[in-house]
């Protein structure tokens, strides 16, 4: 675990560095692959950039609106660099809406675009695993296995390392099948199905799962539903291709 890198007076958050690095590498990778999915790389780059900028600004604005009484008396905090003053879910929702509007404006085809974005998402899966490893998030349950890591007071499953390994395998599979002819959307749905299966499997080793319904892990139930929907979507797209 290595959450902070102190460089002089600056405390650099290592997990954020991994996310930025993943975004940069993933975006370069997606841009290179985009033409083979009939998507212009510059349009794809603009789509992501617009979505990111609107997400960040939107997350801050929504947070300010939510706690407006506090910000009215401290207006300078509206432009504070503090990442704690963000509404992440609201920001993501606004970013997605902005992406949809831009996609409509430039007439991007939905499934082709999602396929073109898949390399970025797959690289981000690895970056997220590295970010979790450095922050100590997504930690495992206690175990006596020889490969256990010492974290938060005891020896635990290295779930972050399992996450990195599975995300790398998913990226390798996608890379191997990239040139294979397939109906639009199958590539993206395959990534979603594999990621959901990976989460369903990994969650069993986590030490901080949210529990529902007499001890079932909430994330596994959500992952199972996403897996079912993506498998159904793949089946449907394949049938349409063959008929």
């Amino acid at each position: 675990m290595f959450p902070i890198m102190q460089i002089g007076p600056f405390a650099i958050r290592v997990p954020s560095l991994f996310i930025i690095l993943g975004l940069w590498l993933g975006l370069s990778f997606a841009e290179r692959k985009a033409p083979s999915r009939d998507v212009n790389p510059t349009t794809l780059y603009n789509l992501i950039l617009i979505s990111l900028v609107i997400s960040i600004i939107g997350a801050r604005l929504l947070y300010v609106v939510r706690f407006r009484s506090i910000f009215t008396s401290n207006p300078r905090s509206i432009i504070s660099f503090n990442p704690g003053l963000l509404d992440p879910l609201g920001g993501v929702a606004l970013g997605l809406i902005a992406a949809l509007i831009y996609a409509q404006y430039v007439k991007l085809k939905l499934w082709h675009t999602l396929d073109a974005l898949t390399p970025l998402l797959a690289v981000m899966g690895i970056a997220l695993g590295l970010a979790n490893l450095s922050s100590g998030n997504f930690f495992g349950s206690p175990t006596n296995l020889p490969w256990a890591i010492q974290l938060w007071g005891t020896y635990r499953h290295p779930t972050q390392i399992y996450e990195i390994i599975l995300a790398t395998i998913i990226l390798a599979i996608l890379q191997a099948f990239w040139r294979r002819e397939s109906a639009p959307g199958i590539f993206f749905l395959s990534f979603i199905a594999m990621s959901a299966a990976s989460r369903l499997f990994l969650e069993a080793f986590r030490g901080d799962s949210v529990l529902v319904l007499n001890g079932l892990r909430q994330a596994q139930i959500i992952a199972w539903i996403i897996l079912a929907l993506s498998l159904w979507g793949i089946g449907k797209s394949r049938n349409q291709t063959f008929t």
Binding site: A197, L200, F201, E203, A204, S209, L211, N214, G215, L216, R217, Q220, I221, A223, W224, L227, A228, L231, W232, I234, G235, R238
Partner: peptide, 21 residues
């Protein structure tokens, strides 16, 4: 594909059940 999907989902449901806390 349908049988493969059902098998995967069945295995997933079994995994959820055995990994409950």
């Amino acid at each position: 594909w349908t049988w493969f999907s059902l098998l995967i989902l069945l295995l997933g449901a079994f995994w959820i059940a055995i990994s409950a806390i």
